[in-house]
Amino acid sequence: MQPDERYGRRWLRATSAVFLKDWHAELRTRYAINALGMFVVTTISIILFSLGGEPASPEVLAGMLWVVLFFAAMSGMSRTFVMEEERGTAMTLQLQAPASAVYFGKLLFNLVLGAGLTLLTVVLYAVLIEGFVIRSYGVFIGVVTLGSIGLAAASTIIAAIIARANTKGTLYPVLSFPILLPLLMTVINATRLASEGTSWADAGGEFQILISYIVVVVTTSYLLFEYIWKD
């Protein structure tokens, strides 16, 4: 043991341990990966059948893309905290790692899961949905990247809040919706702008909102997490 190591280094080791624990557990069980993959394929198929080859407006297609991403995130990102409670390992974790290391480790895991989810959804959506055309690729990549980070950030802290509730499955999307509403409205509008070929300057306002949202959610979560996590 090296108790004289600097706190920052020990904290980073604890944070990466939380992330790697969840990552290796996920690779062994593949619960969230399989659930998210099936959810995305199923919902995009339903959208495809519903449209039936009929053209849809950029607003509708942009909205539907984020509906898929929102509900997919809701079905998979709560697992990181819910599993700790269901298996009874939450206290094991509390006894060992600082609360901030647990929060950032879990956030990192959800960011990676969210990045994979977004990539899969966007690729399938672009290939399968006729009429979904992106004219401004840079803006679109920026929007889905920031949108995915925002989804992961909000989902992580909401998952920590609902993990101890008896009605986790129902409570999660219900509680998430009002918190995610500013993010969803912004990304839907920015995705529509990207499909219409807008410039970076014209989409600047949307990016400012997205970055502010992420900063506010992560900072608030960091400050509140110890109280949510302890009792």
Partner: peptide, 30 residues
Amino acid sequence: IGLVAPYLQLYEEFSAMENLRMSMNLRGYR
């Protein structure tokens, strides 16, 4: 503090060695 209690659970998908390595990492030790 070190705690041993019936309500304290281990990570069952990992081996005994992995649980101990994880515990050291979570506590910030190499």
